[in-house]
Design a protein around this nucleic acid. Structure first.
Lengths: 269, 269
DNA sequence: AGAAGTTAAAGTCATAATGACTATAACTCA
DNA sequence: TGAGTTATAGTCATTATGACTTTAACTTCT
């Protein structure tokens, strides 16, 4: 019997529903040169929590699916087109907002470094190191922490890492993603061995020229992409599980012996 | 047709929020003797979809967290106390319900066979084999299919299997869970080897007497239990990640040589 | 009582995956 | 030209895995 005198009034109040998005991007770390996980936050311009930083989000529109709302949200606040967007969790504790009952359905997105640079310049949108965020509005501190945990859990296992990178990438860059997410260094040789036999990654004919060392070969991801969400059967809105798309597994044998062509890198002065 | 001339009217309509629960239990399969995954459904007693079977659920009360609502839901419809209850996914497609915009936050529960037998006898609550469900109300067919997929994905990896069983269980019973969920047979010897070295399972001093063969030893699960939901820090409502509770890993060395005591089994006539 | 049948439990063996490490190649920069 | 750095390949011991055999402990059939 969870009914005191005045509770049943509130029972009839419909909770409001909001969509929020945790946007993770890989950015080159300051001195350490190692890439790090960053995310953009927006400053609240109204009460409650006026002036605090918060996850991009807003009320769920009546004409869009949850996924669409999250994607719009992402565009509106950061001008980014999502390459990876997945539902994270629905938060609905009683004490999340002071004035009203609020259910937030939180999505998380992964974007590439070049995309992150395109972010709208504004003093109300700012990027933060994911490990440093603190003092956010509402319960967003905890949401970010949870999202980070999920990211760590998922990377060991799924195909999320590629969505931090561009269409072509070196194994060192890919390893950088893993190191940034897992927070520890990985043996380059063993990492290479493992990913050379991975199913959804294939070497290209090109190498990245312009670095100061031996030019690394470029690879590309050939596995399933996650946007739009893989819809089972006839539905419009459905969850993940994109097992199907493993069409071309270009088992690039022999490519190693053929002389690779060349691509200009960022440092080709 | 959710778009007439003016969309913005509906935009302001708050969507209603419901909680539904997919309840999985292991039940002995008919002839094959192999345990199978079953779930209870309730018959709809009002429009829409009157008379169809549906997942237990209802509107989100204003005074309970999402998790609490799911647990209440579970009790109300099946008289079951959840031993495992976790958020599955939030469904919010535009076409889920005809008359209104409906967001359903779906939880899934695992219950033990003895619990499943206690289910309220009613012609409006009935158990079905999980693989057979079809023609449910709303989009519940797809929700069940998704839940089954997640269950399969999670069992290989997490600690969910134990929540289908009682406090003590034999390795054959545990293997039965895996076989039912994964849908294929597993080698008993290899299965044993793997789980004898598993972190969160420990042999007891007892064996299960009363079968018609050599009495198997009983084991117990020593890992983290998932209810109530592992709350990070001070919050009230928070998602999974129960890594902490691995306190006692009773590394039962020597127990094999000591003569185990005996426990009566179901068939002790 | 004894043989047959069944499952529990332990062990064998070849193969695959993993972690730590070494060696060589290819490039830039001083 | 040589020092420094990363790319890439390979070695080796350890561990995990799948298929299979063997022995133990119990019930049931004759």
């Amino acid at each position: 019997m969870h009914s005191s005198a005045n509770v049943s009034e509130r029972q009839s109040q419909a909770p409001s529903v909001a969509i929020s998005t945790v946007i993770f991007a890989l950015r080159p770390g300051g001195e350490s040169q190692r890439p790090e996980i960053w995310l953009p936050l927006v400053r609240r311009i109204r009460q409650p929590h006026l002036g605090k930083w918060a996850l991009p989000g807003g009320p769920l529109g009546g004409t869009e699916s949850l996924q669409d709302a999250a994607a719009r949200n992402l565009r509106d606040t950061t001008d980014l087109e999502p390459t990876y967007l997945e539902q994270l969790y629905a938060f609905g504790g009683l004490d999340r907002a002071a004035t009203q009952r609020l259910v937030s359905i939180v999505y998380w997105a992964l974007v590439r470094p070049d995309q992150a640079d395109l972010t709208r310049a504004s003093r109300n949108v700012h990027w933060f190191r994911a490990d440093d965020v603190e003092g956010l509005a509402f319960d967003h501190d905890e949401i970010v922490a949870y999202a980070l945990g999920r990211l760590r859990g998922k990377i060991e296992y799924g195909s999320v890492a590629y969505h931090f990178l561009g269409e072509r990438f070196t194994l060192a860059q890919l390893r950088g993603v893993y190191e940034a997410v897992l927070g520890r260094e990985l043996d380059p040789a063993n990492f290479r061995r493992q990913f050379r036999s991975a199913k959804d990654i294939a070497p290209t004919e090109e190498v990245l020229q312009g670095g100061r060392n031996r030019p690394p070969r470029l690879y590309r991801y050939t596995g399933p992409h996650v946007l739009p969400p893989p819809a089972p059967a006839g539905g419009r809105e459905h969850p993940g599980r994109a097992r199907s798309l493993d069409a071309d597994h270009a088992t690039a044998d022999g490519t190693a012996s053929r002389p690779p062509s060349v691509v200009a890198g960022p440092g080709s002065s």
